[in-house]
């Protein structure tokens, strides 16, 4: 039995490799066009990382590196659903995240920003999507930070995500931003994507209904991975 191919990646809905406004891409972008190949059983399958158990606090960045108290900052849930392009939920997707602390500083040997580290925060988390593709993190909202690009550019608050679906073709690494952040349209990394409607797919939405009262705000961010070509015609259910 051969599983059907995944849809080709629509490269116009991703940043191009060469985006000179983001200086680091200038020497790291291939000049030659990508070489198109047929998928084989290798790319149509993938490592089952989302089937291995994860630790009980892996999704909770407020507590998972705590030494003597909760991480400092604006407490949030980050939640959503992992879907494929056919709107089919993707269960057992592994989502790994990393982020700066509330002051905009990473717990990383290479980050020299003068903002303080938080001894109770590592900025590392992961979780696995459930049978309906749903996932949930608890964390603090990261702070914006400056970086050298055109002088001091500023990154909007963002969380980095790495996602494994069922197939290696679905592999995706990206960043999410927060609704209403005035730094989003100013960011050279955001603007590697030329189309505002595509950028909008990276913005997590404030969701007051899913807050934890007197504790946590909530942001919703759905993730869409590549989907398999459908082998037979499917009609949408009435009212869907």
């Amino acid at each position: 039995m051969t599983a059907p191919d995944f849809y080709r990646r629509d490269r116009s809905a991703h940043p191009p490799a060469y985006a000179p406004g983001y200086k680091s891409s200038v020497l790291r972008a291939p000049f030659r066009p990508l070489h198109s190949l047929e998928q084989t059983s290798l790319e149509r399958s993938g490592p089952a990382l989302g089937h291995a158990p994860v630790g009980p606090l892996d999704h909770d960045l407020i507590r998972n590196a705590a030494v003597d108290g909760d991480a400092l900052g604006e407490r949030i849930y980050l939640f959503g659903q992992v879907l494929d392009e056919n709107a089919k939920p993707v269960p057992n997707a592994l989502i790994e995240v990393w982020q700066a602390n509330a002051a905009g500083r990473y717990a990383h040997v290479k980050d020299g920003y003068l903002a303080p580290l938080d001894p109770n925060f590592s900025g590392c988390g992961r979780c696995v999507s459930d049978a309906e593709g749903r996932y949930l993190f608890r964390t603090i909202k990261p702070g914006p930070y400056p970086w050298p690009n055109n002088g001091s550019d500023w990154r909007p608050a963002h969380i980095h995500l790495s996602i494994f679906g069922e197939a290696f073709t679905q592999r995706l690494v990206t960043q999410l931003y927060f609704e209403g952040d005035p730094l989003i349209p100013l960011c050279p990394i955001v603007n590697t994507i030329p189309d505002a409607t595509v950028i909008d797919r990276l913005v997590a939405r404030l969701d007051m209904r899913n807050q934890e009262p007197f504790d946590c705000l909530a942001y919703r961010f759905d993730i869409v991975l590549r989907g398999q070509r459908q082998t037979h015609f499917e009609t949408r259910p009435e009212g869907a």
């Binding site: 849809y7 990646r9 629509d10 809905a13 991703h14 940043p15 983001y22 680091s24 891409s25 879907l83 494929d84 392009e85 056919n86 709107a87 790994e96 995240v97 990393w98 982020q99 990473y106 717990a107 990383h108 290479k110 980050d111 590592s122 900025g123 590392c124 988390g125 992961r126 980095h160 790495s162 995706l172 690494v173 990206t174 960043q175 990394i189 955001v190 590697t192 994507i193 595509v198 950028i199 797919r201 990276l202 993730i223 869409v224 991975l225 590549r226 989907g227």
Partner: peptide, 17 residues
């Protein structure tokens, strides 16, 4: 068809996660 979530660079701190 839904649109695939766009990619962004892994950045220099990819090791953390």
């Amino acid at each position: 068809k839904l649109f695939e979530t766009p990619s962004q660079t892994a950045g220099p701190y990819v090791h953390i996660g």
